[in-house]
Amino acid sequence: MKSIYDSRQRLKYVFIFTAILISIASLVVSDMLIKDLAREERQMMEVWAEATRLTASKDAAVDMSLVLKILQGNTTIPVVLCNDRDSIMSLKNIDLPENNVEEFEKAKVQELKSKNTIVIDMEDGTFQYVYYDDSIILKRLLIYPYVQLSIVFVFIAIAFLALASTKKAEQNKVWVGLSKETAHQLGTPISSLIAWVEYLRTKEIDPSLLSEMEKDVKRLETIAERFSKIGSNPDPAPVDINNSIRTALSYMSTRISSKVKIYTHLTAEPIQVLMNDSLFAWVIENLTKNAVDAMEGQGEITFQVEERDKVVRIDVTDTGKGIPKSKFNTVFNPGYTTKKRGWGLGLSLVKRIIESYHGGKIFVKSSEAGKGTTFRIELRKYKC
């Protein structure tokens, strides 16, 4: 069964793909405009070069006022006119420095020469050269698409973050509301069951049966208590992690398939962790159930505890079918499940309890298809 978030994930990728297409289209259109403007500037400079040639012409029919108007009409394109020895004859739209003018002019000639060159045949056996740069407008247009795209991507990123935080807040409300309502709904039948157990004690019924019923009622009370703590700040207390794991597994060992073997490798000395024992037991139970499902009711589960500096690591390893690497993070999403039945909330709940209520971490340490998976929990060690 696919996760209920898969469709939303696909929509996210479609949105990203569409944004990339729009960005590429914007760059292509901008590139076309830039090339068109560069061609127009080239034509303008060719006209300017021709006007320069005409200033040396002895043809009386030449309208010098028009020639001068063309030469003066260039107010945006930096240009240098040089002779065949690259000595500057004139320059326009270039600001000269107060010092080292000659060195600046030589450097500027070499710079513009490498960009755009127009050769003027003076028709007397000599040549002049027009070296020019892109106009300020063209330079701004070259930068503009990238600035525009940067702004667009920033807004997209902000939108994603806002949507993610809104989605998370909504999920939190759903979790808390569902948990509180579940605890409330369990309260009435639990009270009724307690009363029935007390009533049955007055009858001639096997005490061992009543004892088992009482255990199940207490179990329901524990479950209701756990749900009631979701959304609140349960008071943590120093607890020996080894003992907490033993207690949780002692309950689970009689309620899973006899074909599943549970092994524990705990530390010789107690390790104190500041936590809520009831909620942590819920974590162990869910991980155990998840492992049993992954092994289809047959295999081995190993709990290993080790201490590294200020961190306590709990590795939970099963011999199940494994998890694809691409799903290492997805398995913790609410709704993710591979079973035909179920809501897919077990691992999501585990992650929430470990991270939100104990300030720890849980992740898939390793997994191999057909061999099994190892989940790792990391908690801070408590210092007295």
Rank of each mutant, 00 (worst) to 15 (best):
Pro97Thr: 06
Tyr336Gln: 00
Val101Pro: 03
Ser257Arg: 04
Ala291Lys: 03
Lys12Pro: 04
Asp235Lys: 15
Val217His: 06
Ala25Phe: 12
Leu186Glu: 12
Glu40Arg: 02
Gly299Lys: 03
Leu249His: 05
Ser356Asp: 00
Ser26Pro: 01
Ile16Arg: 13
Phe303Pro: 10
Glu198Lys: 12
Val364Glu: 03
Ile230Ser: 11
Thr75Trp: 01
Ser26Glu: 00
Ala195Tyr: 09
Ser232Phe: 06
Glu221His: 05
Arg246Ala: 12
Lys325Leu: 10
Thr202His: 08
His184Ile: 07
Tyr357His: 12
Val67Pro: 01
Lys173Leu: 08
Asn329Cys: 02
Thr182His: 04
Ile156Val: 14
Ala169Arg: 14
Gly346Pro: 08
Ile353Arg: 00
Tyr357Phe: 11
Glu41Gly: 00
Glu285Asp: 14
Ala369Glu: 14
Leu266Thr: 07
Phe332Arg: 03
Leu138Cys: 06
Asn172Lys: 15
Arg10Glu: 05
Ile118Gly: 01
Asp95Trp: 05
Ile245Arg: 06
Thr337Phe: 02
Cys384Lys: 03
Thr317Asn: 06
Ile241Asp: 01
Leu249Ala: 04
Leu274Val: 02
Asp293Ile: 14
Glu306Pro: 04
Glu300Ile: 13
Gly297Trp: 07
Ile194Glu: 11
Val147Ser: 12
Val316Asp: 09
Lys310Pro: 05
Thr288Val: 11
Arg8Thr: 09
Lys106Ser: 08
Lys173Arg: 15
Ala56Asn: 02
Val305Pro: 02
Thr188His: 08
Gly187Ala: 15
Lys340Tyr: 08
Arg246Tyr: 13
Asp31Trp: 00
Glu296Tyr: 05
Ala19His: 02
Ile137Asn: 07
Pro238His: 13
Lys35Ala: 14
Phe155Arg: 03
Lys12Gln: 15
Phe227Met: 14
Val174Phe: 08
Arg201Cys: 09
Ile151His: 04
Ser244Val: 15
Ile194Tyr: 02
Asn116Ile: 06
